[in-house]
Amino acid sequence: MPQPGLANWPYHRSSDMVITLIQQSIQGERNDELFYDFLIKLAPTPQEKEVITGIRDDERKHRAMFRTLYTQLTGKAPAVADGAPEQLPASYLEGIEKALLGELKAFEKYRTIYLHINPQYRDWIFEIMTDEIKHAGYYNWLYAKNK
């Protein structure tokens, strides 16, 4: 019995799902950027501000990557929605916890994209996924430091 491999993967069946997840990711990255702008203002030390600023800048990069990817896959630019963070936290620590959980959920979504997208785009998704795991580590450190 032949082993299932990448050459036999049915990308065409997954393309609508991948496009939908990329659309959601464009907006999610924008929402995260705005949320992290708020957390930067709450951060109690310059070091913490610097860490969150770096994460926020990565989210901007991810959004640009997803926008480019969407355009390459569909031949058209994604719809632009500026948005705003859904609900702002009552405290810095609550915001850090929300950010940590959000980064882990994003990683799971991006793993699904990674597994279903044409292999020529996997390096892009891999870079975004590893950034998200790095962000989760930083938010875990910030949470522990402020608990």
Rank of each mutant, 00 (worst) to 15 (best):
T45D: 00
V80N: 09
T53H: 09
Y70K: 04
S25R: 00
L21D: 07
E59Q: 10
K49H: 02
K61F: 11
R30C: 02
R67W: 00
D37R: 05
A43P: 03
I40Q: 04
K61S: 14
G95F: 04
Q27T: 15
I125Q: 01
E59M: 06
F38P: 07
D32F: 04
Q47R: 12
G102C: 01
Y121S: 07
D57N: 13
E33R: 12
F38L: 10
W124Y: 10
I96K: 05
K41V: 05
P85Q: 09
Y36I: 02
Q87W: 00
F38E: 12
T74A: 04
I26M: 06
V51D: 12
W124T: 15
E86M: 09
Y70W: 08
P85R: 09
E94G: 03
Q23T: 15
P89A: 09
K49C: 05
L39Y: 04
S91L: 05
H62E: 05
A81K: 12
L100D: 01
D57F: 01
E50T: 15
G75W: 02
R111E: 05
E48C: 04
A84P: 04
L42F: 01
P85C: 10
G102Y: 03
L115N: 14
F107D: 00
Q27V: 15
Y121E: 04
A77I: 01
L101M: 11
L73T: 11
I55W: 03
Y36V: 04
E50W: 08
T68W: 01
T71K: 13
H62S: 11
K61T: 15
F38K: 11
D82F: 13
D123N: 12
P89S: 09
R122F: 06
G83F: 06
I40G: 07
A81N: 12
P44V: 05
L115P: 04
L115T: 14
K109H: 04
F38C: 08
Q23S: 15
Q23N: 14
F38T: 14
T20F: 06
I55K: 01
A79G: 10
Y114S: 08
K98H: 11
D32L: 00
D82Y: 10
K61M: 09
T20E: 12
Q72F: 04
E108W: 00
T68I: 02
L69I: 12
L88E: 07
E108L: 07
R60N: 10
Q120E: 13
R60T: 15
L21V: 07
T53F: 07
G102I: 06
F126E: 13
G83I: 10
P78G: 07
T112D: 03
F66S: 08
R56S: 12
L100K: 14
Y114W: 14
F66C: 11
E108Q: 14
T71Q: 15
V80G: 02
